[in-house]
């Protein structure tokens, strides 16, 4: 426990000195804020571009606050995921290939403690980025569009965050046994494949973590939200994360030294 905490502080310091703790939240905020701003100024933007067929501008209605919030969160599904995977891909692989793992793991730091610290650091980064991004989006939505159901927004963000954490955990798993680029590619492919499968077979896969983004949007769009559809995706998402975490610490134990 003690070593997990010491190593966690080292991970956070590394993120701070590498400016990850700055630029990733900034990217998330920009992504989140862009949606309400572009929705609000859409008529203006269209007018500026000229050649707007008559009648189009009159028929434009500002989307509802909840809908814009859902779209804001949806932005994180592609670029947000990419940014997080690229930032996590070096987590284990960099330490192993660079040789820094050899030195710290010769100490009483167990691979499990190191993996816990790394996982917690990624979780901190995700919560910070998503929290700031969603808060920024929510602020502009209430400012420009209208009142936002805050509790629904929070649970929608949490559901989306769980999906993102699944992808980050996959990246960590692959990073523990492969080189960084391969880890990023495979985890993105796995997350993308899971999402695609869910789109193709929504009913048989409604329990899978890939259903989380859709559930997140539904949490915002349907005000009285009574169905318990979220139980299984949340549980399976947590199970996926736990499996990835345990797998990562096991693989890191076996791959402490640079591969040759």
């Amino acid at each position: 426990m003690r070593n997990t905490w010491i190593f966690y502080r080292k991970e956070m310091l590394e993120m701070l000195r590498g400016y990850k703790l700055l630029w990733i939240p900034v990217v998330f905020m920009i992504l989140g804020i862009m949606q309400p701003i572009s929705a609000y100024y859409m008529p203006e933007i269209l007018k500026m571009s000229g050649d707007v067929p008559p009648g189009l501008l009159e028929s434009y209605t500002l989307p509802g606050a909840a809908e814009v919030m859902a779209k804001s969160l949806g932005q994180y599904g592609v670029i947000g995921l990419l940014v997080l995977a690229l930032s996590a891909m070096n987590s284990f692989a960099g330490e192993r290939e660079g040789g820094t793992a050899e030195l710290v793991l010769a100490r009483p730091l167990t691979p499990l403690a190191a993996a816990s610290a790394k996982w917690l650091a990624q979780l901190t980064l995700l919560v910070l980025s998503l929290g700031l991004g969603a808060a920024g989006a929510g602020y502009y939505i209430t400012l420009l569009i209208g009142p936002l159901p805050w509790s629904a927004a929070v649970s929608a963000s949490a559901l989306y965050g769980l999906w993102l954490m699944c992808a980050v955990s996959l990246t960590l798993l692959f990073s523990a046994c492969l080189r960084a680029p391969a880890a990023a590619f495979l985890s993105l492919a796995a997350a993308g494949g899971l999402a695609l499968l869910h789109t193709l077979l929504p009913r048989p896969l409604r329990w899978s973590p890939a259903a989380l983004p859709k559930l997140s949007a539904e949490a915002l769009l349907r005000q009285e939200y009574t169905s318990y559809a979220w139980v299984f995706p949340v549980l399976s998402g947590i199970a996926l994360i736990v499996l990835c975490f345990l797998g990562a610490s096991l693989l890191f134990d076996r791959n402490k030294l640079p591969r040759f």
Binding site: R17, G18, G99, T100, E102, L103, A106, P108
Partner: peptide, 18 residues
């Protein structure tokens, strides 16, 4: 045992940002 040993590898690599 790990507490009682000191290890220096052939080409030690450190965290360069520290």
């Amino acid at each position: 045992y790990r507490r009682q040993i000191g290890y220096l590898p052939q080409a030690p690599a450190f965290y360069n940002w520290m």
